[in-house]
C-alpha cells in the first residue's frame, strides 16, 4: 500500500504565488498610451513635472514612475531645464 505524501508548501512560497497572481497586468507607459499627454512634458509646466520628483528633489526612476525609457529621457531633460530657470529645485529642503 502506498502512502499518501502531503506536500508542504512554505508560507513564503504561498505569498509569492499570490503576489504573482495579482500583479499580472503588464506595465504600460502612460505617455505611449495617451499621445496628448506628451504635450504636458514641458520645462514650463513645473507643476506637472513635480510629480516625477522625490521629496528631496531627485528625479524618480522609471522603475517607480512606470514610464518607458524614451519618455523618461524627455522628462529628465525637461526637469533639468526647469531647474535652471529655478522653477524646480536641485535639492529639497534638508531635514
Amino acid at each position: 500500500m502506498t502512502k499518501k505524501i502531503k506536500l508542504k508548501i512554505s508560507a513564503r512560497l504561498v505569498k509569492k504565488r499570490s503576489r504573482r497572481g495579482t500583479n499580472n497586468r503588464p506595465k504600460m507607459c502612460r505617455f505611449c498610451s495617451d499621445k496628448e499627454q506628451i504635450y504636458g512634458i514641458d520645462y514650463k509646466n513645473s507643476t506637472f513635472l513635480k510629480g516625477f520628483l522625490t521629496e528631496r528633489g531627485k528625479i524618480l526612476p522609471s522603475r517607480i514612475s512606470g514610464v518607458c525609457a524614451r519618455h523618461q529621457r524627455t522628462i529628465s531633460q525637461e526637469i533639468r531645464k526647469s531647474r535652471v530657470m529655478a522653477l524646480l529645485p536641485y535639492s529639497g529642503p534638508a531635514f
Binding site: Y39, G40, D42, Y43, K44, N45, S46, T47, F48, K81, V84, M85, A86, L87
Partner: peptide, 20 residues
Amino acid sequence: MRDMISLLNPKHPLTYQRPR
C-alpha cells in the same frame, strides 16, 4: 537673471501650461 531660448516643435500646439 536667467534666460532659456528654445526651438519650438512645429508639430506641437502653441498652447502651454504654467504654474500659478
